[in-house]
Amino acid sequence: MRNALHLTLAVCAAVAMAACGSSTTVTPQPDGGTPQPDGGSVAGFDFRTDAPGAYTRFDRVGMPAVSTVLAMDKDAYNDGTPTADANLDFAGQLITSLTNLHAALDDDFTGAGLTPCSMDPSDPNDAMSLPKCLAQEVAPGVSVVSLVVPDTLTLDTSKASGFPNGRLLTDPVIDVTLNVIFLDLSVHGPGTLAGVPINPPANDVAFLSAFPYLAPPHTL
């Protein structure tokens, strides 16, 4: 199982490349004043100037619910990186969780008239040598496993935005996630459970059409 998954991921896995974006840069000031290093403040605020390495990791989020629902060692997962994900440091946990869930639930989905996908390692997708649940495609060229490992939110700006291509504020992400990890997508579209729905289909208040998009805070 691990080897099969690794072979699949190796195709898109890391080639050495220097990280960037976190180093100190020098920015010209709009008033033509003395260039000032990033960090500190030009506006009188007392911001810390410590480098990112001075902070201890607390939380990590990419796709909704993956770390919450499927990761078993939460601290290790939150301390991890997408590179570690791609190295399959956590793939065993995710597969174990998902396999256990299918063992408990598949009869129930079948009883509800739905066709679950297969997590049986002896029933792999021919092309990818992965259990069909992980190899099945949510959209052309987008497999379930590619959405979960590594744990990042992926956006192709040449296509319409909407989970799992990025995430809109209005997207029913939990129902869609349950749909694509539990059901056979060759039988049921990824919007099947959201169409029931299982969870509330929309936010309680309307989002804004303009920046910053989120609704104002609730008041007493």
């Binding site: 939380d59 919450t68 078993m72 639930l105 029931v196 299982i198």
Partner: peptide, 28 residues
């Protein structure tokens, strides 16, 4: 019946030791 199916999944996850506030609230 769908709810029951999902409930079973949630219970299985609870047994795995996590209080799961989706999407990532209160995790870790």
């Amino acid at each position: 019946r769908l709810g029951g199916a999902l409930l079973a999944g949630v219970l299985a996850l609870g047994a795995a030791g996590a209080v799961a506030y989706a999407s990532d609230h209160l995790d870790p």
